[in-house]
Design a protein around this nucleic acid. Structure first.
Lengths: 167, 167
DNA sequence: TCTATCTAGTTCAACTTTCAAGAAAAGGTC
DNA sequence: GACCTTTTCTTGAAAGTTGAACTAGATAGA
């Protein structure tokens, strides 16, 4: 239903195959690299770090669970687990939503904010070394455009909207 | 030890930040998309599918565990678990290595090969729709170069060789 | 109001990944 | 050969992820 496989398969050209492999290769290595960097220096995986960053940038350092999940591109289930863990660490706190009794706000605690301030420089440095120190300004620009195009195609809205919003 | 954080943190420019977000965003969505596509159509995650592909292209459809792990950029531990699962599915079989009694070969079974033949067209189509249908030929070329540059920087050999070969 | 439906978030079980530890064979070196 | 180190692969427990089922509150219609 998602992808009708009619007709002969359109295989990839040599250039496309090369690019695809390089893409898989590089994204895997980079993800692993940053995951380890953060696990070592901040005690959490990259996804969790991203959640704290989102919260730190939100209005009152708090955000509704669903919105946070949508921004971070993860399922609500995964977010529940993640927030539970971050709560155990004392970096996030849950709070009932005043306007909707079903709702929860995830709130970045002072400890969480402190931890973020401590680890952000190291993380940025890692990102810089892994990515920006290796690309020309033109490549950075180009990469941004390419990634934007890919994301647009995969965004829940648009053509492929048979999912609640993710899955 | 890995990343001395001396001096003021070199923060990211606006363009770099934009690119970085787009990168995270797009790679997350794409990974999830393909993982679900394969889980649905082939009954396994993307990583596992990649292992079968590697085996299918190896000389006698078999490969030493360590080599397979290195090619797939995963740990040997993870590979052990993965192969165990694929073995349960009947798609892979283990075989003692004649020349080295410690060694094991992972062998793609006929069932595994058949399953691959069945699901490959759909997967290629998914990759094409998600990536190549959305990029110009110039972008494809550029993306390939960029990813190659990133991978080179993260490759175990070279500067950052304090890891056995991964981790 | 009563009912049906939808939305927010959590929970459970199954599965995958990681990390640390360990068994077994191979490769020096003396 | 005896000893030490390295390499190969596996294991087991803890952590993280997924998908489905579930509770509770919101919403809308008759």
């Amino acid at each position: 239903m998602t992808t009708a496989s009619t007709g002969a398969p359109r295989w990839l050209t040599d250039e496309e195959q090369h690019t695809w492999r390089a893409y898989l290769h590089a994204t895997t290595l980079l993800e692993d690299h940053l995951d380890r960097q953060l696990q070592r220096d901040a005690g959490m995986p990259h996804t969790y770090y991203g959640l704290l960053v989102q919260l730190s940038q939100a209005p009152r350092r708090r955000m509704r669970m669903t919105e946070l999940a949508r921004n971070a591109k993860i399922t609500r289930s995964r977010l529940s687990h993640a927030i539970a863990r971050l709560e155990r660490n004392g970096w996030v706190r849950r709070e009932d939503c005043p306007s909707d009794k079903r709702g929860q706000n995830a709130v970045l605690t002072d400890d969480g904010h402190a931890m973020l301030s401590r680890s952000a420089p190291g993380h940025v440095e890692a990102v810089r070394q892994a990515m920006f120190d290796r690309l020309t300004p033109e490549q950075v620009k180009s990469l941004g455009e390419i990634m934007k195009a890919l994301a647009t195609g995969l965004e829940p809205e648009g053509a492929n909207a048979d999912l609640p919003w993710l899955r």
